[in-house]
Design a protein around this nucleic acid. Structure first.
Lengths: 203, 203
DNA sequence: AACCTATTTAATAACTCTATTAAATAACTT
DNA sequence: AAGTTATTTAATAGAGTTATTAAATAGGTT
């Protein structure tokens, strides 16, 4: 596991901490202490806190967008395609439950994150939306699909998926759920979202 | 307007700043500087930063929950009731566009906010859900409404409403919208959400 | 005017934070 | 083994943070 590769260790630990506590909530001192190295080492490898944060942001936001890009869209029905999107997204969120909090939390006052989202969206996002649009048009030309707005559809899906996790944190605490109930909550939400979205696009 | 009531001025300014930049993102020095008073005065009136934050949180979260509680539910159809919920919520968000960012952003690492949400939900939230549940049961007993989960319905509505605003910030920046287009985006979303939700509960 | 209380400020203690520097140690290369 | 480079640390400058204290000022009351 650890061959004492500090450079990587620092990145790993910093990722965890930044994701959980945000840019302002983490100090390079804290990163070093968690890694178990001297604080100067963090700056030796990454020069500035801002730079360390930027690297991590780029990686994570890219990962997030790739989830949508990686969904295969050949030889499947639109219903199946939508289900795959929802499943991929909820799957990602299960592995990265901090992600929505991180993005939304930083979006507000960390211009770095906004700038990066903008850049990465130009790079990947547009392509994804374009691919989906093509797929939809193809289905529509065959009369298999009613007239829908892809933007609205995507916003709907992302909204419902993401907020299931935000809501989960709230309910977990407010209703004092155990982890089993949490898992069940998410599964219920997933089924519900699929049904809701599919019923909205049925021709 | 201002009779140099510093106590109130401080609270007002602190509210704005905390809402925009979060707990960690604001210093009492910054609050004082913005108000135009000495930094010690902030502590004179509110003792600690934590306490000042707590007061503001309480006020704002209460305001937020009250939006749902204040929706009249007498002598209206369920469709109308749902529309009213969506309208009230989007209306509130238009007046407090920072609110979702604030809540979600702080929820993650500020245990104060989570604790408060818990307390205030026990106080107001349960009552609201209870009232809505009663309303739904009444409609259902008359056969005017199919079997739905109120929890899912509320989560759906809140998710779609809230994320319209989060999404708006993203799209505004990414697609370089002007404020007119922003307004139109929100109106479009409102109409779309109403349609989506209503179509999902139609018996 | 004298007294009292509320408001406001200047000064500062005690931290913590980022970033840099010089020095120490470890790891290779020949 | 000696030399060279990479890694790691201790120390610290300089700025900013919260919170407290004592002193100054303003407002009201008798």
């Amino acid at each position: 596991m650890q061959k004492n590769n500090m450079e990587e260790q620092i990145l790993l630990v910093a990722k965890e901490l930044f994701m959980q506590f945000g840019y302002e909530g983490v100090s390079t001192t804290q990163v070093a202490k968690t890694v178990g190295c001297n604080q100067a080492l963090v700056h030796y490898y990454y020069r500035t806190k801002q730079n360390l944060f930027k690297i991590i942001c780029q990686q994570e936001i890219q990962k997030m967008l790739k989830i949508l890009a990686d969904i295969p869209q050949e030889d499947i029905s639109f219903e199946n395609f939508i289900e795959k999107i929802i499943e991929a997204q909820i799957g990602f969120l299960k592995n990265n439950p901090d992600a929505p909090f991180f993005i939304i939390g930083e979006l507000r006052h960390n211009s770095e994150v906004l700038k990066m989202m903008k850049e990465l969206f130009s790079e990947f996002g547009k392509e994804i939306v374009g691919k989906i649009r093509l797929f939809v048009q193809m289905k529509q030309s065959k009369g298999e699909l009613k007239d829908i707005s892809i933007e609205d559809l995507l916003i709907d899906i992302v909204s419902l998926d993401v907020m299931s996790f935000v809501g989960q944190v709230l309910f977990t605490q407010i209703l004092e759920m155990d982890s089993q109930t949490q898992e069940a909550f998410l599964e219920r939400r997933k089924t519900h979202i699929k049904k809701l979205i599919l019923s909205s696009i049925k021709s």
